[in-house]
Amino acid sequence: MYAQLVKSEGTSREEMSPEEIAFQERIDRNEKIEPKEWMPEGYRKTLIRQIGQHAHSEIVGQLPEGNWITRAPTLERKQILLAKVQDEAGHGLYLYCAAETLGVSRDELLERLHSGDMKYSSIFNYPTLTWADMGAVGWLVDGAAIMNQVPLQRTSYGPYSRAMIRICKEESFHQRQGYAIMMKMANGTPAQKKMAQDALNRLWYPSLMMFGPSDKDSVHSAQSMAWKIKMNTNDELRQKFVDQTVPQAEYLGLTVPDPDLKWNEEKGGYDFTEPDWDEFYQVLKGNGPCNKERLGARVKAWEDGAWYREAMTAHAKKKAARRSAVAAE
């Protein structure tokens, strides 16, 4: 998931070259596009933006949860959280590799993240203040991510689709461990239940923002959907997420922080309040509560790790030199 407002560059059907028409027809037939095949430049660029943003989100997404590893309430919870954060790193790596098949290097993508040129999901610019947030992140944030990633398993670009299949297989654990934390807290002491409610209050609207702006303001959706690199509209997925999540909150005995939330029999879904889109655009611009901290932590990790990358390269060179010296004897 985790791709919001990805700019898409396409041409209308009338302006398409014969090559582009043939390409679109392959996509319409649900054929997968593979790295060495011809593709329109716009398709390639849009995919690099989207997969890159997705990868960055996985990597930056480690930070809010990493914040709680040393403070997990039990050894078991600590192991679980470590395993989850480790998975996120893995997911980032799968996705960077998928992006690299499009002719961009991982270092280049990281550079564009660090310079602020590329984005990651707005959700990770919110702080994780209590242990209950670890529950709410797994339940809501990973829940929203799954909602978006499951249909992306059918995306037109082969390497992206295969990365999504791997990721989805691993993602169920993430949401379930989050919900298990919420169950524990919601059925715990009044103070614990209050923490669970507070986490839901703070993370509900930022989770709804994860699907991106409303369809009427989502200018790039149509082209991305024609290319099948976006499978559903933002509003469709958001509605699905709300419909799935509200009963889960009720089961916990928690209240979704939306006074206007109401079941709508006619549409067979909930009516709900849209998130504050001004806030969303502010967060994307870099003015969210944790943007500076998150990006700062990423850049610091990259710079602090430079000596290690250099040492490993030097060591590999030394080993290779030793091997060729032995071979020459």
Binding site: E76, Q79, I80, A83, D87, G143, S172, F173, Q175, R176, Q177, Y179, A180, M183, Q244, P247, Q248, Y251
Partner: peptide, 19 residues
């Protein structure tokens, strides 16, 4: 011994739907 990496490690009631 890292059984907690599997979704089945967590007891989630059926009522809340597929997760």
């Amino acid at each position: 011994d890292k059984v907690y990496r599997h979704p089945t490690f967590y007891d989630i009631p059926d009522e809340i739907g597929h997760m």
